[in-house]
Simulated assay, not measured.
Amino acid sequence: MKSRLPFAVLGVFFLVLYAPVAIVVLFSFNADKSLSVFTGFSLRWYREFFSDGALTGSVATSVQVAAVAMLGSVVLGTAMAIGAMRVRGRFGSFAGFVTLIPLVTPEIVTGVASLLLFKGLGITPSLLTLMLAEITFSVSYVAVILRARLAALNPEVEEAAMDLGATRWQALRLVTFPALAPVVLASGILVFALVFDDFVLAAFTSGTDAQPLPVRIYSAMRFGIRPSINAVGTVMLAGSAVLIALALALPRLFGRRGTGLDLLSGE
Rank of each mutant, 00 (worst) to 15 (best):
M1K: 15
K2P: 15
S3W: 04
L5C: 11
P6C: 01
A8T: 04
F13A: 15
V16S: 08
Y18C: 06
P20N: 05
V21Y: 13
A22M: 03
I23Q: 07
V24I: 08
V25D: 05
F27K: 12
A31F: 12
V37S: 13
F38L: 14
G40C: 09
S42I: 00
Y46W: 13
F49D: 00
F50S: 12
F50A: 15
D52W: 02
G53K: 02
L55A: 11
S58A: 09
S62T: 07
A66G: 07
V68D: 11
S73A: 07
V74G: 04
V74Q: 04
T78C: 01
A79K: 06
I82Q: 03
I82P: 02
I82L: 04
A84Q: 12
F91Q: 08
S93F: 10
L103G: 10
V104C: 00
V109M: 14
S114I: 03
L115R: 08
F118M: 08
K119W: 07
P125W: 13
S126G: 01
T129N: 05
T129P: 03
M131T: 10
V142P: 00
V144K: 08
N154R: 07
N154I: 05
V157C: 08
E159A: 08
E159D: 14
A161T: 04
M162H: 12
M162A: 15
D163I: 10
L164S: 03
A166N: 04
T167Q: 14
A179E: 15
L180V: 03
V184A: 04
A186K: 04
S187M: 12
I189F: 09
L194K: 01
F196Q: 09
V200E: 05
A203G: 14
F204M: 10
T205V: 12
T205M: 12
R216G: 04
R216N: 06
I217F: 09
M221A: 03
M221E: 03
G224H: 12
I229S: 12
G239A: 08
V242D: 06
L243C: 13
L250Y: 00
L253P: 00
G255D: 03
R256F: 02
T259W: 07
D262M: 10
